[in-house]
Design a protein around this nucleic acid. Structure first.
Lengths: 247, 247
DNA sequence: GCCGGGCATTGATCCCGATCAAACCGCCCG
DNA sequence: CGGGCGGTTTGATCGGGATCAATGCCCGGC
C-alpha cells in the first residue's frame, strides 16, 4: 500500500493527475488509505454520501437491489476511477468490492471544497462523467436489444479490453499474457473479477444462461475456460462480432 | 420564439441560470435561435460534435442505431435540458426532435470556452451530468430486470411526473390538467410525445407488446386512452406500484 | 362521400431465456 | 480418505414477449 501520493500507482491516471506536486501534498493529507476485502461495502444506497474515493487497485461494482430482491449491477469501477456522488443528498447505488481493493478515501464535503478550489480537477471530473454517461448509454442499448449471446460476448470483450489497459497490470488479478499490437487484436488470458452470478446480475440474465452462452463460445473455439474464473480469448475479432448480434 | 434571453422561457432553468444578467448578454450574442420540426436531426452519431444547445421547448430523443438496424432510445430531453457532448471527438448518439422544438444553439468550441470562463456554469453542468448518470443507471436496472408491464407502467409514470413539472406547461404539448397536491398524487392527463414505436424503442420491447400492456392498464382502470397519443392517469399510485414488478 | 396510407390494436403461434432440477467440481476440513 | 459446501455446468420444461398476420381507426385528399 502506497504511503504517499508519489508511490500511488494511479497518481497520473486518477483525478489527482490534474494537480501539481505541491497541491498533491495538501490533498494527500486529506485522504486516508483504506483496504477493503472482496464483498465489503464502501457506499450503501440510501445513505447520505459521506465519502468520495479514488480506486487504486482491484475492481468494484455499482449496484442496486431491485424491488424483487435481486441485485442489478449498473457499472464497474477499475483502478484510477473516481468513486462517489458529490453534491447529492443520498447515494443512489451501492458500491461494493468485487476483489480485494485499495482506496484513497476523502470526506465528501472536503472533496467538494477541493473541487471548488481546483478548477482543473472539476474540469477533469466533468469530462470523465460525460464519458461515463456515454458508456452507460451504450450499455443501455445492449440491455435493451442484444441477445443473451451478444451480451455475454460483449461483456467478455469489454472486460478483456479493460484489463489489457496499463493500470490493471499491477492489480490483484492475473495480468493479460499478451497484448494488442499494431491494431490487430491478439489472444489474451485473464481472470474474471466477477462470479457467474454477478455476471448474470450485470447482464440482466440468469446464471444458467450465462454459463450456457460461455460454453457455446468455448465450443465455437472463440474462448477457452481453463477453470475457475479464468478466461482465454482465442479469437478476439470473432468475439467482437458475436457481441453485435442484436435483435 | 424568444428574441432575447430575457424572454427565454427556460432562462432560470437552463445552464444559463448560473450567469448574471450582464454575462447573459454576452452569451446571448453567441447563441442562435433555431426551430426544428418533429423528426429533424440536430446531432448525428459519428459526426464530430459541432454544436451544443439548450432546449427551450418541446421534447427530443437521444438514440442509436443498433447493428441490426433497429433504433434504441437511450434518453429523452425536456425544456431546460442541455444538449451536446463537449470535449468529445465524436458524437456517440443521435439527437432528434420528437415534437417541434425550439433551441438555443452554440458552436461547441465557443461553448467550451464559455465553460472555462464561467466556473459556476461548469459546476452546474457537472451536477446535472452526475444526476443524469444516476438517472441512466436507474433506467439500466429497469432494462435489465423489469417485466414488460413494469417498463410500460414506469415509463407512463415517469413521463407524467416530468410533464407535470413547470417548464413543460408552456410547451407544444397539452399541459397536465391537474397536479399533485400536498404529496398526494392526483389524476392527470397529457399527450405522449412519442409514438408506440418510439416507446418500444425506448423500452426495448416491440410495438405489439407496448400496445398490449397499455390496454391491460386501461382494462385495470389505472389509465385511460382517449385516443391518439392521449393518456389519462386515473390511479397514479397503482401505476407506480405496477412499475415495481421486477423479476 | 369514398378511398388510401399511417399508426394502433388484436389474435395465433413460435422461440429464447427463465425456471426447476440434478449432477459435477474443486476445495477446505475433519 | 471421505464428506460437505459453494459455485458451475448440464438437462428438461415452461412461459413471456417476439413474430407473423389480420383488422381497426383516424385523418387528409379528392
Amino acid at each position: 500500500m502506497a504511503r504517499s501520493c508519489d508511490e500511488c500507482g494511479v497518481r497520473d491516471r486518477a483525478l489527482c493527475a490534474s494537480l501539481g506536486d505541491d497541491e498533491l501534498v495538501t490533498l494527500g493529507r486529506l485522504g486516508v488509505q483504506r483496504r477493503l476485502a472482496r464483498g465489503d461495502t464502501l457506499i450503501r444506497a440510501g445513505d447520505p454520501p459521506l465519502v468520495c474515493a479514488n480506486l487504486q487497485s482491484g475492481v468494484m461494482k455499482i449496484a442496486t437491489l431491485t424491488p424483487a430482491g435481486t441485485e442489478s449491477i449498473v457499472g464497474l469501477l477499475y483502478p484510477g476511477d473516481f468513486i462517489g456522488r458529490p453534491f447529492a443528498t443520498a447515494n443512489e447505488h451501492d458500491v461494493i468490492a468485487l476483489t480485494d481493493v485499495e482506496l484513497c478515501v476523502f470526506p465528501r464535503a472536503m472533496f467538494e471544497r477541493v473541487l471548488a478550489d481546483h478548477q482543473r480537477m472539476e474540469h477533469l471530473l466533468l469530462q470523465r462523467t460525460l464519458a461515463e454517461l456515454d458508456r452507460a448509454r451504450r450499455w443501455l442499448t445492449r440491455m435493451g436489444r442484444a441477445t443473451a449471446a451478444a451480451r455475454v460476448a460483449g461483456f467478455l470483450d469489454d472486460m478483456g479490453r479493460r484489463l489489457a489497459m496499463p493500470d490493471c497490470q499491477r492489480s490483484a488479478l492475473a495480468g493479460p499474457d499478451s497484448q494488442r499490437s499494431g491494431g490487430v487484436a491478439r489472444s489474451m488470458a485473464y481472470d474474471l473479477p466477477l462470479s457467474r452470478g454477478e455476471i448474470a446480475d450485470l447482464l440482466g440474465l440468469t446464471i444458467e444462461t450465462v454459463s450456457r452462452q460461455m460454453t457455446r463460445l468455448r465450443a465455437a473455439g472463440i474462448i477457452g475456460l481453463p477453470g475457475g474464473r479464468g478466461i482465454v480469448i482465442n479469437d478476439p475479432s470473432a468475439l467482437a462480432a458475436a457481441a453485435e448480434e442484436y435483435v
